[in-house]
């Protein structure tokens, strides 16, 4: 088990290196120069070419690409994420203020998805072919295909602009005012978890139906057990094994979704920070931000893989 975790962590490091390299290259390949964007912010002052070259040296952008990457990596290993080109602030500080916001929404969305997805899937399977199953299955198919930001805009129009039930946007820290914070979180969490709930519902439903037709379920019936016991004790645990895989994928998807949803709902999280930085070519923020997200995804996938063992005793980590 320990050997397995160590091996997985080493693999994770390789994945992280590849991710940073890819992001680094992608940023440099994008047309546009962050310094030009920076300079164009100031209408009153104009910069001389010499001053721009000076800035370029300051951010190390005058060096060759391999040198830039190696320097950046070295800084990261020393815990220094660099300075934002556009905002001039320390990237580590920026991320440390934005990440908790995204994690707050992300964790809520993940829990909501796992909970609702599994419950809907189980109910559908138990009511297979009945109207409830048909309705939920259709909704799940819609949930998978509909773009989340579009739902977000619709919800905002309905619940905020028309009915005035919920705030259109913004973020209130849970430590500041929990009720307000949760109210403001309702719509973003719906959007972030929509796809995941739908995907998990479908996966749970089909896994349950698969398990229900197994011989050991017939054995359970032949023992005279109650239907409730057969579902809770004999069926769900088996059905969870394939569902866990899908659940693991949701972490990355929810983080990815936050880029869009935080922009739509004007939430000061990592997602919006990344989106803005991407537009302004703020190399340092994009590189460090994607690295942080990749670390979270790699670690959560490891946790998911380890949790398989809890559901399936046949699994040997080796």
């Amino acid at each position: 088990m320990t050997a397995y975790i160590i091996r997985r962590l080493l693999l994770g490091v390789i994945i992280l290196l590849l991710v940073t390299l890819l992001v680094f290259l992608a940023m440099r390949l994008l047309p546009g120069d962050p310094l030009m964007i920076f300079v164009s912010q100031f209408q009153t002052e104009s910069f001389t070419p010499e001053q721009i070259e000076e800035l370029r040296r300051e951010f190390g952008l005058d060096r060759s690409l391999p040198m830039q990457y190696i320097n950046w990596l070295g800084d990261i290993l020393r815990g220094d994420m660099g300075k934002s080109i556009i905002m001039g602030q320390d990237v580590g500080y920026l991320i440390s203020t934005r990440l908790p916001v995204t994690v707050y929404f992300g964790v809520m969305s993940f829990v909501v998805s796992a909970f609702l997805g599994v419950i809907f899937g189980v109910i559908c399977a138990l009511r297979r072919g009945k109207w409830l199953d048909s309705v939920v299955t259709v909704l799940a198919n819609i949930g998978i295909t509909v773009p989340a930001f579009w739902i977000g805009i619709l919800l905002m129009y309905l619940f905020s602009l028309t009915l005035h039930w919920l705030p259109t946007s913004g973020y209130v820290a849970p430590t500041e005012n929990l009720a307000q914070s949760l109210r403001a979180a309702i719509m973003p969490v719906i959007c972030l978890s929509l796809f995941s709930v739908a995907a998990l519902t479908r996966q749970t439903r089909s896994a349950m139906l698969e398990v229900v037709s197994q011989d050991y379920i017939r054995t359970a019936w032949a023992k005279g057990l109650r239907e409730r016991v057969i579902v809770l004790r004999h069926t769900i645990k088996n059905a969870m094994i394939p569902v866990i895989t899908i659940l693991g994928l949701q972490v990355g998807l929810i983080f990815g979704g936050s880029v869009l949803i935080e922009t739509v709902f004007n939430i000061p999280g990592m997602g919006r920070l990344l989106a803005n930085s991407l537009f302004s070519h703020d190399y340092q923020i994009v590189q460090a931000g994607t690295l942080v997200i990749a670390v979270v995804v790699v670690l959560s996938n490891l946790i998911v893989d380890i949790s398989y063992g809890w559901f399936d005793p046949r699994i040997r980590y080796g």
Binding site: Y216, R233, F311
Partner: peptide, 24 residues
Amino acid sequence: MRAIRGAKIAMIFQEPMTSLNPVL
């Protein structure tokens, strides 16, 4: 019916490899 099954009339099935629940 449940009071009969497993208590008064019990059954053994033909597939020993799959008739027991793998996770219990």
